[in-house]
C-alpha cells in the first residue's frame, strides 16, 4: 500500500513536466510534420495536403543545396578544430603545471559568452576590407609584415563558411578541453607508470593507452559538437547578416517562414534538421543507456 502511494505521488510529481514536454515538444513536432506536408503559404493556415512536395522542392532548390554544402563544410571543420584544440589544451593542462585552474578557467570562459557577442567581435576582427581601408586582423597582419595572411575571410567566394568555424572553434574548444581533461584525469596513474616501466615513450603512451581510453569522451564530444553545429544560426547572423553565400538550413528556415510566409517549406526544413540531429543523438542515447545498464 505504502509503496503504491509513493508511486502515485512520484508519478504526480513528474506529471507536470511530462505534460509540458508532451505538449510543447512532441505535440509541436507532430504539428510541424503536418504543416510540412501542407501548402500553407501566407498568414492564413492552409492545411491542404500536398504530400512530400515541400521536401522534393527543397532538394531541387539550388539554395538548399548551398545550405547543405555550407553546413557540411562548417560541421566538419568545427568538429575537427574543436577536437584537436580541445585535446591539445587538455593534454597541456594535464602536465601538472602551476596555475592550472587559472588556465582552465581562461580557456573555459569563451563558452559562457553568447554566440551573438562572439559573432560581433569576430565581425570586427575578420573585417574583409581591402586596400586603404584595412582593419581588424588584416590590419594586424599587414603591420606585422605578414601581408600574405591578409585575406577576405568570410567573404571569400565558395569557402567563406569555413571562416565562420573559426569563432565557433574559439568559443567551444574550451568546453571540449574540459571534457577531455576529466577523461584524462580518470586514467589511473599506475597505467602510465606501468607503460614507462615497459619502455614506452610519452608519444607511445598517448597513442596506445591514453587516446584509446578516452575514446568514449571523443564520441560524446562529437555528438555534442554535431548538434551544436546544426543549430548554428546566431553566430552566422552576427558575423555576416543575411547573406545567401553563408546560408545554412536554419537561416533558410527562418527567412522563408517569417520573411516570406512559406510556412509549409519552413516546417519541412525544420523537420529535416530534426531528423539530422536525431541521426546523431539517438544512437548515442541508446549506447549511453546500454552502458548505464551494464554498470
Amino acid at each position: 500500500m505504502r509503496v503504491n502511494r509513493e508511486k502515485v505521488i512520484s508519478f504526480l510529481l513528474v506529471l507536470p513536466s511530462i505534460a509540458a514536454v508532451g505538449i510543447f515538444i512532441y505535440a509541436f513536432i507532430l504539428w510541424s510534420v503536418r504543416v510540412s506536408l501542407s501548402q500553407w503559404k501566407g498568414l492564413l493556415p492552409d492545411y491542404t495536403f500536398v504530400g512530400l512536395a515541400n521536401y522534393i522542392g527543397l532538394f531541387n532548390d539550388p539554395r538548399f543545396q548551398i545550405d547543405i554544402r555550407n553546413q557540411a563544410i562548417f560541421t566538419v571543420l568545427f568538429m575537427i578544430g574543436c577536437l584537436i584544440v580541445g585535446l591539445a589544451l587538455a593534454i597541456l593542462l594535464d602536465q601538472n603545471l602551476k596555475g592550472e585552474s587559472f588556465f582552465r578557467s581562461v580557456y573555459l570562459f569563451p563558452m559562457a559568452i553568447s554566440y551573438i557577442v562572439t559573432g560581433v567581435v569576430w565581425r570586427w576582427l575578420m573585417n574583409p576590407a581591402q586596400g586603404s581601408r584595412l582593419s581588424g586582423l588584416n590590419l594586424l597582419f599587414d603591420q606585422m609584415g605578414l601581408d600574405f595572411l591578409v585575406n577576405r575571410w568570410h567573404t571569400t567566394p565558395y569557402w567563406g563558411i569555413a571562416f565562420i568555424a573559426l569563432p565557433a572553434v574559439w568559443q567551444m574548444s574550451g568546453y571540449i578541453m574540459a571534457l577531455y581533461l576529466s577523461g584524462l584525469r580518470s586514467i589511473p596513474q599506475e597505467l602510465r607508470e606501468a607503460a614507462r616501466v615497459d619502455g614506452a615513450n610519452e608519444i607511445q603512451i598517448y597513442r596506445h593507452i591514453i587516446l584509446p581510453m578516452i575514446s568514449p569522451v571523443t564520441l560524446s564530444a562529437i555528438i555534442i559538437l554535431g548538434h551544436i553545429s546544426l543549430k548554428v544560426f546566431d553566430l552566422i547572423l552576427a558575423v555576416a547578416g543575411k547573406q545567401l553565400q553563408l546560408d545554412v538550413p536554419a537561416i533558410y528556415m527562418w527567412q522563408t517562414t517569417f520573411d516570406g510566409y512559406f510556412f509549409g517549406r519552413g516546417a519541412a526544413i525544420g523537420i529535416l534538421l530534426l531528423i539530422s540531429v536525431a541521426v546523431l543523438v539517438i544512437p548515442y542515447l541508446r549506447w549511453n543507456l546500454k552502458t548505464e545498464e551494464s554498470l
Binding site: 545567401l244 520573411d259 516570406g260 510566409y261
Partner: peptide
C-alpha cells in the same frame, strides 16, 4: 508581396555568387 520578394531575394543571392 513578401513571399515574392523573398523568392527574388534568393534568386539574387544565387546570382551574386
Amino acid at each position: 508581396n513578401d513571399s515574392w520578394k523573398t523568392e527574388i531575394d534568393t534568386a539574387l543571392g544565387l546570382f551574386l555568387q
